Amino acid sequence: MKRKKILFFIYTMGKGGAARTLLNIMNNLDRNKFEPMLVTLNHDGEYEQYVKEDVKFIKLEQKRLRNGIRPLAKLIKQERIDIIFSTIPNYNMVAILAKMLSFSEAKVVVREADHVGGSFLGNLKCFIYGRFYNRTDQVISLSEGVKQNLVTKYKIKPNDIEVVYNPLDIVNMTNEIESGTLPNHLKPIFNKGEKVVVTAGRLVKQKDHHTLLKAFAKTNDQVKSQLVILGEGPLEEELVSLAESLGIQDRVHFIGFQDNPYIFFNQSDLFVLTSIHEGFSHVIAEALASGTPVVSTNCKSGPSEVLDEGRYGDLCEVGDEHAISDAMTNVLTLAPEQIQERIELGKERADFFNAPKIVSRYEDVILNTFND
C-alpha cells in the first residue's frame, strides 16, 4: 500500500493537551502506512523539540489563524496531501476551509476535544461548527461524553462520529520519570516530610483552581501538606491572593509550565483536578501512568470515563470544596498497602490508553475514510 501523506495542522506546538495529543499520534504512526507532516503558524512551541526527525515540519509565515487559510490551502495542493488532520474547533474550521480552497481530493479528519456549549452563544457556535464538520470525511470524538455533545449541540449524526481516546506515550513518560530530576530550587517542597498534592493545567476559569485552593486549605487543617500547581495563565495573581487570604500562601507553589511534569506527578502523593468541564482529561491519565492516585471532579465529560466511573480514582461534584477536601484527606491518610493498591490499579488503567493501542485505532479510522 502506498503511504498516505497526512498533514497535522495546529496553531502552535505550545503548552496544552491538544499539541501533546498530536505529538503522540504523529510520533507513533506506522511509517509503513503514513508519511506525517506537521504545519503550524509562525509561533514557537515547547513541544516542537519532541517531534520526531522524520516528521516534515513547516511553519507558515502567518501568525494569525485566519491569515493561514490560503497558505495552508496552497501547501495542501503543492504537497499532494492525502489526509488533513486537525483538532479544536477554530483550527478545524481553518483546516476545512483550506481544504475547500485547495480543490484537492484530500480527506479531512477533525477531532473534537472538549465538552463545550451551554450558553446561547456557545450553543450557536457549536451549531455553526457542526455545519462545517458535516462537510468533512470523519469526525473523531475523544470520549463518549463529547460524542453525545457533538450529536446534541453540533447536530452531527452519531454514525458519523468515531470515539478514539487520547494516546499516552507511556514509554516516553517512564523514561522522563527515570531520567529526570526535580529542579534544585523546588526539591525542598518534596523534602519537608509532608504530603504533596499536585495539579496541572492552565490557570483559567475552566480548571477552577479557586475550589482547589479552598479544598486544599481544609485538607491541610487535617494533614499538613504542600500544593504544587503546574501551569500558567491569566488568573495567577488572583489565585495567589486567594491563597494568601486562606492563610496557605507558604504551602502553595505556583511553578509554571514544566517540560517534564511526570517527575512532579511521580514524586507527589496525590493528583487533583477540579475542572468545570473537560473533553477527556489527558492529565488524569498521565497521573495514573506516573503512579499517582487521583481525585477529580465528575465534570462533563472526560474524568468519569478515564476513571471508569470512579473505579480508578475518586470523583466529586464540580465546585464542591467539602467533598473534594474529604476525598483528598481520605487518600492522604490511606495505609501504605492501600496506596500501593491504588497505584497499581491506576497503572493498569493507564495501559488501556497506551499509545500503540490508541494510535492503531486512529490509523484504522483515518484509513477507513478511503473506503467510503
Results as ranks from 00 to 15, higher is better:
195 K>Q: 13
273 L>S: 14
181 T>S: 15
217 A>I: 09
228 V>H: 07
239 L>P: 06
213 L>N: 05
259 D>Y: 05
268 S>W: 11
249 Q>S: 15
280 F>L: 09
223 V>G: 08
199 T>L: 05
246 L>F: 05
255 I>W: 05
286 E>I: 02
254 F>N: 10
177 I>F: 01
265 F>H: 04
263 I>G: 03
203 L>H: 00
184 N>M: 10
202 R>W: 00
185 H>L: 10
271 F>D: 09
202 R>K: 08
261 P>C: 09
178 E>S: 07
270 L>K: 06
281 S>V: 04
235 L>K: 08
235 L>F: 06
240 V>R: 14
261 P>V: 05
175 N>T: 03
222 Q>H: 13
264 F>C: 08
205 K>Q: 10
267 Q>M: 07
200 A>D: 05
275 S>L: 04
168 L>G: 00
285 A>P: 03
231 G>L: 08
201 G>T: 02
199 T>C: 15
272 V>A: 14
264 F>E: 07
207 K>A: 03
272 V>Y: 08
271 F>H: 10
205 K>Y: 08
199 T>R: 05
251 R>Q: 15
247 G>Q: 11
176 E>I: 01
251 R>A: 09
184 N>W: 02
216 F>M: 14
254 F>C: 10
248 I>D: 07
222 Q>R: 14
172 N>S: 11
181 T>P: 04
183 P>K: 13
229 I>R: 04
169 D>I: 00
236 E>Q: 14
192 K>L: 15
198 V>A: 07
271 F>Q: 08
213 L>I: 11
226 Q>T: 12
250 D>L: 07
194 E>G: 09
222 Q>V: 14
251 R>D: 15
275 S>W: 02
224 K>Q: 15
194 E>Y: 12
223 V>I: 14
223 V>E: 09
216 F>A: 14
174 T>A: 04
276 I>Y: 05
167 P>H: 04
210 H>S: 13
222 Q>M: 13
237 E>C: 03
262 Y>C: 03
